[in-house]
Computed example of a mutant assay.
Amino acid sequence: MNLSEDGSDKTPVERGRGDNSRGSKVYKILLERMRSGDLKPGTRMREDETARELGVSRTPVREAFARLFARGLVESAKGGWTVKELTRSQVMELYSLRAVLEGAAARFAAQNASPSDLAALGFASDAFSNVSGGAGARAKANMVFHEAIYEAAHNSYLSRMLEELNDSLALLPDTTFSVDGRTQAATLEHRAIVEGIEARDADKAEAAARRHIENAMQARLEMIFKKDLQEG
């Protein structure tokens, strides 16, 4: 993908700061490549090679890698950077914190959601239930559902914390929706969260959201142990 501005078939990118800056665009591209598995943990990257591939100068690439480093997504390596690989304990820490934050988002949503927020949340829940395609498509539909909760929570500080945390999920290979039965279980878990929010029952919504993430963590650990056994 080329980010230069000298052709109509290339993605226009604004200079400067903010979400539309070149550095931010490069960051999002690299993050998406981590999520898709194109950039796996342990992959080495160089600023000059990345800049050449994306058709930008090294400055926005340097900014993007600095942001990835600050988020704990890459590590400095000789002559470049390496995509970080999370340990099992770090994975558990990540999911434990995510359970707390997702629970808080569901609680705030139960307290603050507008009628339009509730409609969007119901639509996102149904969309996940009816999604076609593989585990990747289900993972994207799941993210849309959770983003609908964040919107309904109406707490910008919490949203920023969740954005950073969810960026870290890019370091996890594959998706828990590749585990047998996880999609069906998540569908029921989503409905429980929605029911709590619609009933304005903050305790029920928070508890349901926490269970959802705790169950996702169990699926993730199952994936990790299965992989360890295969490699052993």
Rank of each mutant, 00 (worst) to 15 (best):
W81V: 05
T82G: 03
K84E: 09
E85A: 12
L86Y: 13
T87H: 07
T87N: 12
T87I: 10
T87C: 09
R88T: 12
R88Y: 07
R88W: 06
Q90K: 04
V91E: 12
M92E: 08
L94C: 09
E102K: 00
G103H: 00
A105K: 00
A106C: 09
F108S: 02
A109R: 01
A109E: 00
A110D: 01
A110N: 08
Q111N: 03
Q111G: 02
N112I: 02
A113G: 10
S114L: 02
P115W: 06
D117H: 14
A119E: 12
A120C: 06
A120D: 11
L121M: 09
L121E: 01
L121Q: 04
G122T: 06
G122N: 05
F123S: 10
N130E: 11
V131K: 14
S132H: 13
S132Y: 10
G133S: 07
G133T: 09
G136L: 00
R138P: 08
A139L: 07
A139G: 01
A139D: 10
V144G: 13
V144R: 15
V144C: 06
E147D: 12
A148K: 00
I149G: 04
A152Y: 01
A153M: 00
A153T: 00
Y157E: 13
M161D: 02
M161T: 04
E164V: 13
L165T: 01
L165Q: 02
D167Y: 03
D167K: 02
D167S: 09
S168F: 05
L169S: 12
L169H: 14
L172D: 15
L172G: 13
D174F: 15
D174V: 13
D174K: 15
T176M: 15
S178M: 14
V179R: 02
V179Y: 05
V179Q: 11
D180A: 14
D180G: 11
G181L: 10
G181F: 11
R182L: 11
R182M: 15
A185Q: 13
A186W: 10
A186C: 11
T187D: 15
T187R: 08
L188A: 15
E189G: 03
H190N: 12
A192K: 12
I193M: 05
E195C: 09
G196E: 02
I197Q: 01
A199G: 09
A199F: 03
R200E: 09
D201Y: 15
D203W: 08
A205E: 02
A208Q: 04
A208D: 10
A208R: 03
A208F: 06
A208V: 07
